[in-house]
Write a protein that binds this DNA or RNA. Structure first.
Lengths: 347, 347
DNA sequence: TTGTAAGCGTTATCAC
DNA sequence: GTGATAACGCTTACAA
């Protein structure tokens, strides 16, 4: 604090009333006579008094802040989510602190088990990378309301807003199959077993192949440590060297797909003529890519607003039963999986 | 709070010591005998005691939180900045709350003048959209340390980390001129006078044209309300209808440029053969676009770490003289402004 | 080295 | 309707 703060007491003194009365005026308590109210208002104005939220918090136990915990804030999916969460939170009177786990398992645990200054927040919105099982194994601090994001099947112990990743992936691959593609590769599997999203999307990929009666070709599955453009580029380059060459690629994220498209383009191949590409997330970048990127859209505004609504309710009533909400998704076909009629002109 | 919190007093009681001693142990005060320390540690463990950061804050006046105020969090430039700010803040022991002004002038004022719960934060990192003059006109609350981001010339009243927008824009346009382009359009000017960045970039654009002896062609300057892909697309479409058609476009942001490239592509024109395109920000998306997007790179990690450093110092010593730091930038030539090797007969 | 107690600026429980 | 005053949980003189 740069200079001594003006307190309730100062105002009370200036207005010639008690702190109780000033507090009443500040918090719009109804039973204050108009004359007194006016005098207090004037004193507040004169002294430029601002209530100290910390002191208020200590008394009320409410900070008015939520924490949003994501792996990273800069990938478009998460920054879009953050934007929607911040906006939704504002509608409920909350502000949002953002923390990044950096895809670090231990950091997730640390943030969740309340190692840090968890009490600074009225509630937590948490987008985990680890699986259900891993998460339940951690002894999550029960002292702070928590809503989980993005994970499909929890056991009802927590509120959560989820995507059906298995189904989303299956629909994406089925879309490629319906195009007549038969050699369908996937980018984004994970070597480690503890991460949830890649497992589910891989599972959807396998389901779709099985339904179509296709074999799984190990060389068609490229794992990637992150869901970045760079990883997509490298993985696609690797796929192009496989014989027979894939005629379609399902990427576990749009960023991977963007990278893959660049690699395919640089190799002198055409999209979708030679290789069709589809991603997941439906980020705006894909709409403006040329060819534009087909994707599975995920309703982030819905996820954000439902999650904040659930969290606000949980804060107000810690004992109410938990809710599980499924966010809608749908395949958005664009040029990268268009039925091949004319050249895309992308080179 | 879901259940009654365990307090210092509870621990003290359990360990058979005074709260003072427990507090000493918790805050690693050196002069505590080993036996007592062990006993206290044990009691803390047993009771699962977590210090209440709010109470600590009320005493010390420090929350350990910074606020980052940006127009929007989801454009890549700002989400990248946020990521770097969060990381830099963590190194100084701070966490970061993010607020969006939504490009709203009044909201900026409200956040800055401390209308809200400003005291919750030890300091503010503020990326303003309004000009210097507008900002100084607001009576910014002096009660909270403030570092400004992205604005070039303030009068030294505040700490700030800035980009030389005029120079960055001039270099971008000069790069186009050096390519031999003569009909150079610009996308991103603003009809309103109070926004800083567009004014500066427009000014750099004009300077470069003047140096080259080119006239300003009013129809070559397209204003846009936001720096989005959609605005870039629409603006470029508008430019393509102008005669004579521009042979280069300088976009005030990479997002605008991405949109413009899509429009040019959709019109059946080639980049850079028919029209060269350059943006500002050097977002990763531009590297993976095809053709890849030339841009002016801005050193966001530098901006973030310097800004946090300045803010931390300001918090520690409110009276020290302010610093003004200029972040480096440089033109990154890519395919969208590559020297044209194909025969075109165009110039 | 450790205990006692006085705040930090609110809100809320009593009285009057 | 308004005034004292006791918390909220912590840090930190001041004592011991």
């Amino acid at each position: 604090m740069l200079r001594m703060a003006v307190t309730l007491r100062d105002v009370a003194e200036a207005a010639g009333v008690s702190v109780r009365t000033v507090s009443n005026v500040v918090s719009d308590f109804p039973h204050v006579s108009d004359g007194v109210r006016r005098r207090v208002r004037q004193a507040i104005e004169d002294l430029d008094y601002r209530p100290n939220p910390i002191a208020r918090t200590l008394r009320t136990g409410r900070t008015g802040m939520l924490a949003l915990i994501v792996p990273e804030i800069d990938p478009p999916y998460f920054s879009g989510l953050a934007r929607n969460v911040i906006d939704a939170a504002a509608e409920h009177g909350y502000r949002v602190m953002i923390d990044q786990t950096g895809h670090d398992h231990d950091r997730e645990r640390e943030l969740l088990t309340g190692g840090g200054r968890t009490m600074l927040f009225d509630g937590l919105l948490f987008s985990p990378i680890v699986t259900n099982a891993e998460l339940l194994e951690m002894k999550v601090s029960r002292s702070v309301p928590l809503v989980l994001l993005g994970e499909y099947s929890f056991d009802g112990q927590y509120d959560h807003v989820a995507i059906d990743n298995v189904h989303a992936a299956r629909q994406a691959v089925t879309h490629l199959i319906n195009l007549g593609r038969t050699r369908i590769a996937a980018i984004g599997t994970q070597p480690l077993e503890q991460y949830s999203t890649p497992l589910q999307r891989a599972s959807g990929y396998h389901e779709a192949l099985r339904s179509a009666g296709f074999d799984r070709h190990p060389a068609y599955q490229i794992s990637s440590t992150s869901y970045s453009r760079a990883d997509g580029y490298a993985a696609a380059a690797q796929l192009l060297a496989v014989t027979p060459q894939p005629d379609a690629i399902f990427c576990f994220s749009d960023l991977l797909a963007i990278g893959a498209m660049a690699a395919i383009h640089d190799a002198g191949l055409r999209i979708p003529t030679d290789i069709a590409v589809i991603g997941i997330d439906d980020i705006e970048e894909g709409q403006y890519a040329r060819p534009s990127l087909s994707s599975v859209s995920i309703d982030t505004p819905f996820i954000a607003s439902e999650a904040v609504r659930l969290l606000a309710a949980r804060i107000d009533d810690p004992e109410s039963p938990t809710s599980q909400i499924l966010a809608p998704h749908r395949v958005i076909p664009r040029q990268s999986t268009a039925v091949d009629t004319e050249p895309t002109g992308n080179n």
